[in-house]
Design a protein around this nucleic acid. Structure first.
Length: 545
RNA sequence: GCCCGCUUAGCUCAAUGGAUAGAGCGCAUGGCUUCGGACCAUGAGGUUAGGGGUUCGAAUCCCUUAGCGGGCACCA
């Protein structure tokens, strides 16, 4: 049940449905009406009840309407065949404007009940700078975090730093090779930044060149990864993304968590020794069909990344007590989900507490992105070219499960018509009106019933939808819904403003102080809503542009 | 071969199983002597990839075909 107007309507309809003798009411599908002629909200529930009640839907609709107990100051009911339509009362909308104008935090919800949620996102191997393919996960994860925070969850943003896996070792070895003018190792890193790292290391780590290879590699690995983490943090910070925790894989082993997880699996008979290696063999329903056994400890005694991940689950759910963890992964990792879910169950954790959100890959128009072939665009370069707000919006509007083809030339040439400026301009206009009106004589308290023009009420309606738009997006974990709301709201703002260009009598700043005061209140309500929404997208709300 | 995701207007993308599938860009037409034109209004543009099915009702759920992307390691 959602809060706000919609929640009230749902509750009222539900009560009426029960009064008709329906024990298990179906989903009301009560939502905003598409066509304005149908009012503001509508439900087709009468059609769903036709079979059970053995009556024609229009009859059921009118029966429901008779029993519906709605405060008239909120909405009126209209019958349209099998549909029940609701229209928000103007008086209620006008009062709402006053409430929102006074509430800079309008739309914040307690829906989450303080649930402790971790969002782990964009945990890219810190062996190089991040490119535009990674940007998608960065923005998606951050937007999810903002959304959950706004809806009453305790959110922690985390980046998992792989500092001791195969890639990390190769990275360290590559820097070592570069430092000594040797050929990079098999599968090593060759970019120019590796050479720069080697030079920096020569300066920052005195005596590094004299150390024996093994020790030097270890130290160079740690050093290089620190530098890369700094670099990645700096890049995402330009996009208004700030992690609470950069959690290192090595810390898991220091704390003995993978060891603990392995011991637990061994005790419960969920590991097998075979071919010299230790395999994951969980006693979990569905495992046999869905996946094969996987190696936890290699035959050479080295643990796999999966061993770390087992410990990581304990860290998240037991050591740190998160009630839910949302992992944002690239879709190339989707095959890993069944194994992680099984690992949760095998460790005695609730698999449903681990939520994985996949985002599809980003491809360059010229073809697949490839570091090796030098075919990639750095996220930093993109921010340089089009700016942080446009970049965020660019990623945010797309649902994560459609693949993106990235055309850099197009992105740059279209950056000036990015819809984000449409919304920011609406905000700046509202701010400007307030400035313009400053110092004029007007009453302290607005008489909101003066807000009667269609475009004024349309703006108020759009403002009224904000809380449910937020909750919907949070419930579905779909931040891409927010920019669409923002666009609609900006639309209403511009239409409201434009009315004053057609006819000076419709401006905000008019001779009638009562009218001006009421319209200013609407501007402030619009501003608060717009700012909250832009905030949720991590996009700035400028007073001037 | 098996598994996952995607296919909606010329292009980029939306749309809790509900009424006439919507935006932006592009295209056409119209609108400022005074609150910022990065704006507004109107219009053209659709077999929701193809074919079956479920349902009172399908872009949405099921089956199937095709295309695109990804995965199927003692890599992560």
């Amino acid at each position: 049940m959602s809060s706000g107007v919609r929640g009230e309507l749902e509750a009222a309809v539900l009560a009426a449905v029960r009064e008709l003798g329906v024990k298990e009411p179906p989903d009301l599908e009560l939502g905003r009406a598409r066509n304005p002629n149908h009012g503001d909200y509508a439900t087709p529930v009468a059609m769903k009840l036709a079979r059970e009640l053995r009556r024609p839907p229009p009859k059921i609709a009118s029966d429901l309407a008779e029993r519906l107990n709605l405060p008239p100051e909120v909405a009126s009911i209209e019958l349209a065949g099998p549909y029940l339509n609701f229209r928000l009362a103007e008086g209620w909308l006008q009062k709402l404007v006053g409430r929102v104008a006074a509430d800079p935090d309008y739309g914040r919800s307690r829906m989450g009940g303080g649930e402790r949620v971790q969002v782990e996102f964009a945990s890219i191997n810190p062996t190089g700078p991040i490119h535009i393919g990674h940007g998608r996960g960065v923005i998606l994860g951050d937007a999810l975090s903002r959304l959950l925070d706004f809806t009453g969850h305790q959110v922690q943003r985390e980046y998992y730093v792989n500092d001791q896996n195969t890639q990390a070792r190769r990275f360290g070895a590559s820097v070592y090779a570069r430092l000594h003018g040797l050929e990079p190792p098999e599968g090593g890193y060759t970019g120019e930044y590796v050479a720069e790292l080697a030079e920096q290391a020569r300066r920052d780590l005195p005596g590094i060149e004299e150390l024996p290879e093994e020790e030097a590699e270890l130290r160079l690995r740690g050093y290089a990864i620190d530098r890369m983490v700094d670099l990645i943090a700096a890049t995402v910070s330009r996009l208004n993304v700030h992690y609470d925790e950069w959690f290192r894989e090595s810390r898991l082993w220091d704390d003995g968590l993978p060891q603990k997880a392995i011991a637990r699996l061994r005790e419960t008979g969920q590991l097998q020794e075979r071919e010299g290696a230790t395999w994951f063999a969980p006693d979990v329903p569905g495992w046999e069909e869905d996946d094969e056994d996987r190696v936890v400890i290699r035959s050479n005694g080295e643990p796999t990344y999966f061993a770390s991940d087992l410990g990581y689950l304990l860290s998240k759910f037991e050591e740190r007590g998160f009630q839910r963890v949302i992992d944002v992964w690239g879709s190339d990792h989707h095959g890993y989900i069944p194994r992680m879910k099984s690992a949760m169950a095998a460790l005695g954790l609730d698999p449903a507490a681990l939520v994985v959100i996949l985002n599809q890959m980003v491809n360059l128009k010229e073809g697949k992105m490839s570091k090796r072939q030098g075919r990639f665009v750095l996220l930093d370069e993109l921010v340089d070219m089009v700016g942080a707000d446009a970049v965020r919006f660019f990623y945010l509007v797309r649902s994560p499960d459609t693949m993106m083809e990235f055309d850099l030339d197009l992105a740059v040439s279209q950056s000036n018509e990015n819809p984000v400026y449409y919304a920011q301009y609406a905000y700046a206009r509202l701010a400007n009106v307030d400035t313009f009106a400053a110092g004029r004589e007007m009453p302290a308290q607005p008489e909101l019933s003066l807000l009667r023009e269609p475009w004024e009420l349309a703006l108020a309606r759009q403002i009224a939808y904000w809380p449910e738009a937020v909750e919907e997006a949070a419930r579905l974990l779909e931040p891409h819904r927010i920019p669409y709301f923002v666009h609609d709201l900006a639309d209403s703002v511009h239409a409201f403003y434009q009315a004053g260009n057609r006819d000076a009598g419709y401006r905000v700043v008019v001779d009638d102080p009562e009218l001006m005061r009421a319209r200013l209140e609407l501007c402030r309500a619009g501003r608060n809503t717009l700012r909250a929404a832009l905030d949720l997208m991590g996009v700035s709300a400028p007073d001037r542009m």
